[in-house]
């Protein structure tokens, strides 16, 4: 081709060829700039001593003082430990669960059964934590709860689950699984629907059995989604789910159940310490950020799938 294009370097050439694609992305990035990046200036108050009387602009700079105060806070180690343990458990057990659910659903013959189960598992997602908790309270109650009635019948001692430091974390993890799994199962089911049916048929012709099909077709079929979701979930490692903990916990279990989000709520919303909680938020996000970059790098090497 003759003309100006020939003078372009290869990058410019590629740019020119895909300029429309580029501007398409750019137009949406403008939205990101306005609604996501402009508000970021507020995070600077993590390095200020924010005071209402001076507002954002005039509040004095204090460098890393807020972060220092954070790391010296006697509560901080406790909430960090609790957050890591609870979130870790949620990832270890709660993350694979919807995948298993999707794989199982995928092997069901009867379409009516499959659809019913799939709908049913989605339903708890709509029940707010307030109501879900009230049901949990009545199931787990040491005096009248179904579970404890059963335990007593079997000759055991009733357990005060929600005031028990031993049981509180498992209850958070299990109730999270039963309430939220259906939501993520939808993503995996959608991904599975995109796997070419002919591959399944070919496998059957080759005499692959059920387990081989799951291992060699189903799982690789959703592996890219699993990878992405896993990386993103790691980015939220220090996020446990505020509402759930806030509604279920009580001072009885602060030692094992007080997490960064509930701590942050008490400091920020109730205590009005915006600089302090912003510093905490930045700390939390930075950890997530590092984890995303690292896990993306590792998984990209291992599986070939990644965020970028």
């Amino acid at each position: 081709m003759q003309g100006p294009a020939s003078r372009f370097s290869s990058f410019q050439k590629q740019f020119w060829k895909n300029r429309f694609l580029f501007f398409m992305a750019l137009s949406i990035l403008a939205w990101y700039a306005i609604f996501r990046y402009i508000p970021y200036y507020w995070n600077l108050i993590a390095f200020k001593d924010y005071q209402y009387s001076m507002g954002f602009a005039k509040s004095p700079w204090v460098g890393f003082e807020n972060f220092k105060a954070l790391f010296q806070d006697p509560f901080f180690l406790r909430v960090l430990r609790n957050t890591l343990v609870i979130s870790g458990l949620k990832i270890a057990i709660g993350f694979p669960f919807p995948i298993i659910l999707a794989i199982f659903l995928n092997e069901v013959f009867k379409s009516a059964f499959k659809k019913t189960i799939q709908t049913i598992t989605f339903v708890p997602f709509f029940i707010s934590w307030v109501i879900y908790a009230s049901i949990l309270f009545s199931v787990l109650s040491p005096s009248v709860g179904m579970l404890n009635v059963l335990i007593s019948r079997l000759g055991g001692e009733p357990i005060y689950f929600l005031a028990s430091e031993k049981w509180f974390r498992p209850i958070l993890v299990i109730s999270d699984i039963t309430k939220q799994s259906g939501y993520f199962t939808v993503i995996y089911m959608a991904a599975l629907a995109g796997v070419d049916e002919e591959i399944f048929e070919a496998a059957i012709c080759d005499g692959a059995n059920l387990f081989q099909r799951i291992w060699h077709i189903t799982i690789p079929g959703i592996a890219p989604v699993i990878t992405i979701l896993f990386i993103l979930r790691l980015g939220q490692l220090l996020t446990v789910g505020f509402e759930q903990v806030y509604i279920l916990y009580s001072p009885m279990v602060y030692d094992v159940g007080d997490v960064i989000e509930t701590f942050n709520y008490r400091q920020g919303i109730l205590g009005g310490r915006f600089s302090y909680t912003t510093a905490l938020g930045l700390f939390k996000s930075s950890i997530g950020f590092v984890l995303v970059i690292a896990s993306n790098w590792v998984l990209k090497k291992l599986t070939g799938h990644g965020l970028w």
């Binding site: 990058f11 590629q14 740019f15 060829k17 895909n18 694609l21 580029f22 992305a25 990035l29 990101y32 609604f35 996501r36 990046y37 508000p39 970021y40 507020w42 995070n43 993103l232 980015g235 912003t278 938020g281 930045l282 996000s285 997530g288 950020f289 995303v292 965020l307 970028w308």
Partner: peptide, 22 residues
């Protein structure tokens, strides 16, 4: 993959997911 500056763009976008807006 042919999008110029693709990695930068993805980075810009993913960043907003990890650092929420107050």
């Amino acid at each position: 993959k042919r999008l110029p500056l693709r990695k930068t763009f993805i980075f810009i976008v993913v960043f907003t997911m990890l650092f929420p807006t107050g």
